[in-house]
Structure formats: structure tokens, C-alpha cells
């Protein structure tokens, strides 16, 4: 899929008064935020701030109790997750959710699902169109593995990879859906320092291809290094938003993270 020329400043994602309650628990209490296209947007906050809940709402796994989510100007809340994936939002998971007994390559090939179409009969009867599509899926998946540096592992079972590589594989699978917006949920969790640095480079590379990145992350060095914009949540509420420099000096953020001392 081609990415049309970006209009600088246009927002790819708009959150309008997002509220999410589970019974009496209010996980998100009215989040308003706009993500400009083509940037790296970080979402930070102490545990329980509602970051993952927000990701679940954007990717359709949860339907917000109140408010609307606009993706490229169109409302997406209430759509099934696979529809949202098809529109161009992909994601990774905080707790790795790979298809563990499938190979590394097959995991990425699965990512091509919404960009391909051979159905039940076409695959069962092995129509010629299906075969060339399959070759294409294979080729593209290999290219994405190449991009993230996992080409050598393509035949291994995904579950046998070390955690760090599993996290990277999830990114490759997400990229294979050809998203315009990718949500990375704690991609550096469980990575060592070298791996985290490589991850930072990879995320910047992804952004340079025109994909907007939204990142939930606890590794502050990584966040401060690569983010263009940071949104801070605290107990399901908006706390602050701005550039890394701005956030670093924000007294409300410092208090939320360090307590009253």
C-alpha cells in the first residue's frame, strides 16, 4: 500500500474524551489527545495509569465506554479489531502474543493476512492466483524479517526465540500488516542495554518510512531519546503532554513519578 504525501501537522489519530470503565473501576477518565502523522509519540505513566487500556481501545480490543477515536478523520471505535487492522493500525503486546508453535517466518506471513485475499476454495483447490499470492506473502514476510534483523531465524519456532527477539518479531509481524500507525506496548521490556539501543534505531527507522509510532514504555532513556512527543497519564487521567525536554521539567510529572519529595 502506498502512503500518500503527508500533510505536516495533520493528526493521524484523535482521541476525544476517551473513558473506559470496568464495572466501578474507571481505567480511563476522559483522555483528549491528537497524534500528528509521522512522529514517534510516547505514552508514559506509572503502573496503572491506563496506557495499555488506551492501546486496547485504539486497536479495538476494548470498546470505550464514552468518547470517540478518529483515525485519519474517521471514527473507529466500535469496529472489530480485524477491521481496524485492515484500516492501518497494528500493534504489539506487552506480554508477547506470538503464535509460538508457528515458525518465525509464518508469524510474519500471518501479518500479511489483511493485505491478501485467497479464501477457502481458492486455497483448498490451489488456484493459480492463490499460489502466486502465497509466493508474494513469503517474499514480503522475508523482507520484513530482513528489516528487523531476524532473517537468520526465519525457520525456527517462534516460541524458541529468546524474549528480546520475540519482541522484535512482534514488531516485524505488526509491520507486515502495512500499518500507517503502529502501537508498541513496552517493546523494551525484558531487553538488555544493547538490544534496547538497537530497538531505538529500529523504531526510528520505522518512523522514517512514514509510519506513525505510538509507544508505551517504561525505559525513560529510550523514551527521551527517540520520542517527538510524550503524553503522560496518571490514574487514567491526562497529566501532561509535550516534547521530551518539556516533560522532563514538568513539576506535575516529577511529582507523579517521584512522589512528594
Amino acid at each position: 500500500m502506498e502512503h500518500p504525501a503527508r500533510q505536516p501537522g495533520a493528526s493521524i489519530l484523535e482521541l476525544n474524551d476517551i473513558q473506559m470503565s470496568f464495572g466501578g473501576v474507571h481505567a480511563l477518565k476522559g483522555i483528549n489527545h491528537a497524534v500528528p502523522e509521522g512522529i514517534i509519540q510516547a505514552v508514559i505513566g506509572p503502573n496503572g495509569a491506563g496506557k495499555t487500556t488506551l492501546f486496547h481501545c485504539i486497536s479495538g480490543l476494548l470498546n470505550p465506554t464514552e468518547g470517540s477515536i478518529l483515525f485519519r478523520g474517521a471514527e473507529i471505535n466500535g469496529l472489530a479489531p480485524h477491521r481496524i487492522a485492515h484500516l492501518g493500525i497494528s500493534r504489539t503486546f506487552q506480554h508477547v502474543a506470538l503464535f509460538k508453535s508457528m515458525t518465525v517466518l509464518e508469524n510474519v506471513m500471518l501479518g500479511r493476512h489483511s493485505r491478501t485475499r485467497s479464501g477457502f476454495w481458492a486455497t483448498g483447490l490451489r488456484f493459480p492466483g492463490m499460489r502466486s499470492e502465497e509466493r508474494n506473502i513469503h517474499k514480503k514476510a522475508e523482507a520484513f524479517l530482513d528489516l528487523v534483523g531476524l532473517a537468520d531465524a526465519s525457520r525456527l519456532q517462534a516460541g524458541t526465540l529468546p524474549l528480546g527477539k520475540q519482541k522484535i518479531l512482534e514488531i516485524a509481524r505488526a509491520l507486515a500488516t502495512e500499518p500507517r500507525l503502529v502501537l508498541l506496548d513496552e517493546p523494551a521490556g525484558g531487553l538488555n542495554m544493547t538490544e534496547t539501543e538497537e530497538l531505538g534505531v529500529l523504531i526510528q527507522k520505522i518512523c522514517q518510512t512514514g509510519i506513525t509510532v505510538v509507544l508505551v514504555e517504561h525505559d525513560m532513556n529510550l523514551v527521551m531519546d527517540i520520542s517527538d512527543q510524550i503524553l503522560v497519564l496518571h490514574y487514567g487521567q491526562y497529566l501532561a503532554s509535550g516534547t521530551p525536554q518539556h516533560i522532563k521539567d514538568d513539576p506535575a510529572v516529577i511529582e507523579a513519578y517521584l512522589g512528594e519529595n
Binding site: 479495538g60 485492515h86 502474543a97 503464535f99 500471518l110 501479518g111 493476512h113 500488516t177
Partner: peptide, 17 residues
Amino acid sequence: RALRAIHEEEIAAEAMG
């Protein structure tokens, strides 16, 4: 692949389209 993915991680399969 879609079927196997559903069997292993239904939510991830759905989120991947």
C-alpha cells in the same frame, strides 16, 4: 495460518487482521 493463529493466540490473530 489464520486457523492455527486463532488456536494459539486468538486476540493477537484478530489484532493482526
